[in-house]
């Protein structure tokens, strides 16, 4: 898997850096960063991406709203979404997945676990 394009949506610079750092295991990947849902939708208008990785709790527009809007938009709805959040309760997980996210990862994340989830999603789509 090479030259993948990821959109990382996170308000925390620490998490943005950690996720981006982990994604660099994919050779030649391009990472676009957004600080909230609105910023992510703006970035989607100008950047083509293969996957969106989003937090839930963010200012302006949260991750669940972002997932809903992306999955409603015919232009973007095929982009797989991975939710990465501190919200680890089962009902939060069910909600995120019911909105159309492909995977739900609870923080704190393990770099190798994140890579495996992404690889599995992209493999299934081949």
């Amino acid at each position: 898997m090479e030259n993948l394009r990821f959109l990382v949506v996170e308000d925390s610079p620490t998490m943005r850096q950690l996720i981006s750092f982990s994604l660099k295991r994919f050779k030649g990947c391009k990472i676009v960063e957004a600080v909230d849902g609105v910023d992510a939708l703006k970035k989607l208008q100008s950047e083509e991406v293969d996957m969106i990785l989003t937090d839930i709790n963010m200012p302006v527009m949260d991750g669940l709203k972002l997932v809903t809007l992306v999955k409603q938009n015919p232009k973007f709805r095929d982009i797989p979404i991975v939710i990465i959040t501190t919200e680890g309760a089962q009902e939060d997980r069910d909600r995120g997945l019911s909105l159309g996210a492909e995977a739900y990862i609870s923080k704190p994340i393990q770099s190798s676990g994140l890579i495996k989830v992404i690889t599995d999603i992209l493999e299934k789509r081949k």
Binding site: P13, T14, Q17, L18, F21, P108, S111, S112
Partner: peptide
């Protein structure tokens, strides 16, 4: 090594930030 890699990634990012 994977575990160490995870640890280093976390430590690197935390320290950098």
């Amino acid at each position: 090594i994977e575990e160490q890699n995870n640890n280093l990634a976390n430590l690197y990012v935390a320290s950098y930030q």
